[in-house]
Amino acid sequence: MDEFVDAIRWLGDPAHWSGAAGVPARFAEHMWLTGVSLLIVCGVAVPVGLWLGHIGRGGTVAINVSNIGRAVPTFAALALLFMTPLRLSDWTVIIALVVFGLPPVLTNTYVGMREVDRDAVDAARGMGMGARQVVWKVELPLAMPLIMNGVRLAAVQIVATATVAALVAGGGLGRIITAGFGRGDRPQMIAGAILVAVLALLVEAVMEFAQRRTDPMRRVQRRPLTERAAAI
């Protein structure tokens, strides 16, 4: 327990809160890597998922992609990227983060589109909506909770992978952990871990809030989640 107290003391030391290796700088790096990667992931995976889901094809591809992603360790992928002539710049880290962030968004967008009530789509068509209107006004809003679920999973995954990048010499809060490990400074290592854990939980909480806000049915009484899952 003493080591946790030392870690808290480390966090309280103003010397650790300034400079290029200080907490704010590392936090900014982490948020920059995460933010850019998440934007690219959404920009690519959401349109592709919407399109595949709308035409109802490529489902096995969309789902298998995420299974393969799980078998490749993020550490190995980052290490291999680092050894290519690209070396490890911000952009190589971002490439890796995007690769690991794509599967959950793609799968969830696809499944979200497929699970939109067919009656609602038929009704929209009957009212004279064209394909574009059906996607924008009916399918997309109804698929929104699942799409946002995918984005949330991707955000958590990207924050975690960005931490691993520090093991390969990337920036971000993970660097505080690896630097502490490297010079045997246990309080610093634990302090870094606390910061990373807090950041991950914050991202999760913000994304969950966003997920609730974008649900068009949020004001309608819903059946409990388990019941809905069973119904599917």
Partner: peptide, 17 residues
């Protein structure tokens, strides 16, 4: 689920004391 959100690198570093 909360535990699952904590990145594994941080989890190992938190457990090692």
């Amino acid at each position: 689920t909360v535990l699952y959100t904590v990145p594994s690198l941080a989890m190992f570093a938190l457990l090692f004391p």
